[in-house]
Amino acid sequence: MSATDNNGQMTGREAMREAMRQAMLADDRVFLMGEDVGRYGGCFAVSAGMLDEFGPDRVRDTPLSESAFVGAGIGAAIGGMRPIVEIMTVNFSLLALDQIMNNAATLRHMSGGQVGVPLVIRMTTGGGRQLAAQHSHSLDGWYGHIPGLKIVAPGTIDDFRWMLGPALDDPDPVIIFENGGLYGASGEVSETDPGLPLDRAIVRRSGHDISLITFGGTLPTCLDAAQELATQGVEAEVVDLRSLRPLDDTTIMSSIARTHRAIVVDEGWKSVGISGEIATRIMEQAFYELDAPVGRVCTAEIPLPYPRHLELAAMPSVDRIVAAAQLAMQGRTPEMAVA
């Protein structure tokens, strides 16, 4: 069954599977490796059926050895292959952080430009499924801190389908953060590659009152918030960053030039996070465009708790985004409102 049967609609997991299949059919240097990607079919069933189609050499089950198989992906990339390394979730990527940060991100620089690492690492990210502290991290922005890496986070099903190609074409390491909540979500998928550069942000909804700047799992939340705001007479523009490193300053600033107000929404923590980076860039590059301080809606500064009501209260929600946007319309931020 082709995954596009359904009128161009696919789920996130089908879209990523199709992206991997097509990449592997087109280029025999491409292979997938990770824990349970083969026999099990992927811990989120993203690679279901691929072992049968491509065999165990190219859909390669690894032991629980995150550091070793990510490092092996780096080595294989240097050796001329085009590996897609799947780390089950961002939580376990911390065991491979040394390889990612000290090898993948630095080899080109410290070898004086001789040794590049054309590697793609895919991992699930995000909370919201009651998996508790150790299984709910959102470190997408945190990885964006590291020079030498490229960080992307699809927020639409079309990007689940079409981001992998340019990531594999890239001569440097690209990490794709896939929000777990989007694997089961359906969305429209372009029949052919829309040809979007990997590092380009996109305006997903136009509006002239305020910009909601976000990425990944909180994109749908922001689109819902924009809809709600419209019923309250506020026209919000929604900017989908898509890439966290590099950040597309041009798209962000041109949105600010239209709306003069912004809320940054990130499922990561606020302190020392990417939301602060974006707010600072706006201040540096578009200060005189602003009619209000830049607001932020992020996850509460705690490891995510297990109970549903506490987890929901901790994470960005439509209500919190709408409230922050309404405050921005009055020239205020949630922090000021508390004081």
């Binding site: 009651q130 508790a132 150790q134």
Partner: peptide, 25 residues
């Protein structure tokens, strides 16, 4: 206290230190 759920049972009094959901952690 409800914060951990199935994967994070702790009871310091009984010297039960989890409940760790990172394999080998």
């Amino acid at each position: 206290g409800g914060r951990g759920g199935s994967m994070h049972l702790f009871d310091a009094e009984h010297r039960f230190y989890g409940g760790n959901a990172i394999v080998a952690g």
